[in-house]
């Protein structure tokens, strides 16, 4: 499917890129685009839990705040958490997965034991523990929790790929030609593990955004007045039946942004795949 190599003719990639660009743009321009102060509480006659109207296109929440403005501002936090955390997670996961898979033996055993400990560790307990250590929940703690718990999936995927790849001929050949460990890992193993890595990483970005919502649910996420889709979703859930717009719009934003990231990731894989290029 040669057409898939050109970015603009790959529909999935295109759709993903547009969605992501849209959300990134909206997040960046939130201060300009938001029609109202997202923190402005309705006072006096202001309407709370009001359905979409001309003045509040996405309605208002329980405190009478404009949902559209909050969705725009909230996107900044959610996207920053999704992408920022994943960048750290990929670096950490790749290093650990490569080392474990490539060297095998005691290195692998030791690293995988650590991975196991982290994976088997109930995130809830960690969340509570972190509240204890820091006392004040906030976005920085969200980063710490998500990175601390998130790298294991990438590490396992990379390791699995490497285990399978390193028995292949091209790796033997590279080694026979005198390639150093680092060269083999970075030049031969990593690029070949790229496709599943990309898939895992894109799932990861979306996953991080969803996880941020989950942490907000536990009260560990961004604290008011910081706005995040997760916190809005948690708040709106109460009104799902009576005032669905409070939860549906941040939920839809989250869903579309995650969808965009995933389409983008799938597209990227098709475009970058070395075997397609060859």
């Amino acid at each position: 499917m040669p057409s898939a190599r050109r970015p603009l003719s790959h529909h999935g990639f295109l759709a993903g890129a547009i969605l992501v660009a849209l959300f990134a743009g909206a997040a960046l321009l939130a201060p300009v685009l938001a029609p109202e102060d997202p923190h402005a509480v309705a006072s006096g006659g202001g309407a709370t839990l009001e359905g979409p109207t001309a003045s509040h296109p996405l309605g208002t929440d329980a405190l009478g705040r404009d949902v559209l403005s909050r969705v725009l501002w909230g996107g900044r936090v959610s996207l920053a958490v999704g992408v920022g955390v994943e960048a750290l997670v990929v670096v950490l996961g790749c290093v650990i997965g490569l080392l474990a898979g490539y060297f095998g033996g005691p290195v692998d055993a030791a690293l995988m034991r650590v991975t196991d400990v982290v994976m088997a560790f109930p995130s809830l307990v960690l969340a509570i523990g972190l509240i204890a250590v820091f006392e004040q929940p906030g976005l920085d703690k969200v980063f710490i929790v998500l990175v601390a718990l998130g790298w294991t999936t990438i590490a396992r995927v990379v390791r699995g790929e490497v285990l399978s790849l390193k028995t292949r001929d091209f790796v033997h050949a590279a080694r026979a030609l005198g390639g150093g460990h680092r060269a083999i890992m970075v030049r031969h193993l990593l690029p070949n593990a790229l496709a599943p890595l990309l898939v895992a990483a894109t799932i990861g970005v979306g996953g991080n955004m969803v996880a941020e919502a989950g942490l907000s649910f536990l009260g560990l996420g961004a604290q008011a007045p910081t706005i995040s889709w997760g916190a809005m979703l948690a708040d709106g859930q109460t009104f799902l039946a009576s005032a669905p717009w409070v939860a549906v719009f941040p939920g839809a934003a989250l869903l579309l942004a995650v969808l965009g990231m995933n389409l983008l990731g799938d597209g990227l894989r098709d475009l970058l795949d070395p075997r397609l290029r060859a």
């Binding site: 955004m209 969803v210 919502a213 989950g214 979703l233 989250l254 869903l255 995650v258 969808l259």
Partner: peptide, 9 residues
């Protein structure tokens, strides 16, 4: 993707 990103609750 919908399945992954739908909150369980």
């Amino acid at each position: 993707v919908l399945g992954i990103s739908t909150p369980v609750f």
